[in-house]
């Protein structure tokens, strides 16, 4: 576009051009220059505004760019949703696993309680009967007392205690040389009190079967009285021994 412009040929012409430049730069307070200055001020203002507005990255983005951004964010969202679903599944698995653990622990605790009661290592209470065997003549034999215990067991007694001794699987009833009875090595004095937890409606008639435990006690010269109680407390316990030779079969 240099058609209207003549390149200066001589030194004088060059000097003229420079003088024009100086003239142009010299302030001239006429209306036209003022308007030019005003326009330039507007231009500077809009340049500054545009530079600041350019910070918004999405403003100047083209349609393709916007579509690409949208696609990207959509992909990102779906990725995050997949991840969310995965984490949800993991959470669910962990929660159900914990529930399983809790159930197993509850079952184990219940089982532990049952076994503790069976082994006689913890006190117990519940519905049952209290059997009182009077022995005025001192002739009730160990086998007779054992018969009473067996009869109670047959009738479904869950926990039995003679005097202050807990009756467990290995309990022995023996006769001492002087004729007194001892349970697991502990001497007991008449009248003997046997406490049993179980169904009273079954245990009491079981003792009174003709030719049964009650009759055997009577045959030995004693008397047997059974009383049903709603709250039989059995507080005697046996210490738990550690098996020395036995191992659990896996």
């Amino acid at each position: 576009m240099s058609d209207g412009t003549r390149t200066p040929q001589s030194r004088e012409q060059q000097r003229l051009v420079w003088r024009r430049l100086v003239d142009t730069l010299r302030p001239q307070a006429n209306l036209a220059q003022l308007i030019v200055g005003l326009l330039c001020l507007l231009l500077g203002l809009s340049i500054a505004a545009q530079l600041r507005a350019g910070d918004d990255s999405l403003e100047g983005a083209s349609q393709q760019e916007l579509v690409r951004l949208l696609d990207e964010s959509g992909r990102h969202v779906s990725d995050l949703e997949v991840e969310n679903a995965e984490l949800d599944r993991t959470l669910e698995a962990l929660r159900s696993g914990r529930e399983g653990d809790v159930a197993a622990r509850n079952a184990a605790e219940e089982r532990l309680q049952d076994l503790e009661i069976l082994a006689g290592t913890v006190p117990a209470q519940g519905r049952g009967i209290v059997v009182s065997i009077a022995d005025p003549t001192g002739e009730v034999r160990a086998s007779t007392l054992l018969g009473v215990i067996q009869e109670l067991r047959n009738a479904g007694a869950e926990v039995i205690q003679i005097e202050d001794v807990r009756v467990i699987a290995s309990t022995s009833i023996t006769t001492e040389p002087d004729g007194t009875l001892s349970v697991d090595g502990t001497r007991i004095e008449a009248p003997y009190e046997v406490r049993a937890i179980g169904d009273p409606a079954v245990m009491e008639p079981a003792l009174r079967i003709p030719g049964g435990a009650a009759d055997a006690v009577s045959g030995d010269g004693g008397t047997l009285a059974a009383a049903t109680e709603d709250e039989v407390v059995i507080d005697a316990v046996v210490p738990l021994g550690t098996p020395e030779h036995t191992q659990v079969v896996k």
Binding site: T24, L25, R26, P27, Q28, Q33, L34, V36, G37, L38, L39, C40, L41, L42, L43, G44, L45, S46, I47, A48, A49, Q50, L51, R52, A53
Partner: peptide, 22 residues
Amino acid sequence: MIAIIGLVLGIVLGAVVQPDVP
């Protein structure tokens, strides 16, 4: 000269006032 002064003044003014482009 006035043009250059106006330009510089405008840029400074824009930077200071920070006008919002409609």
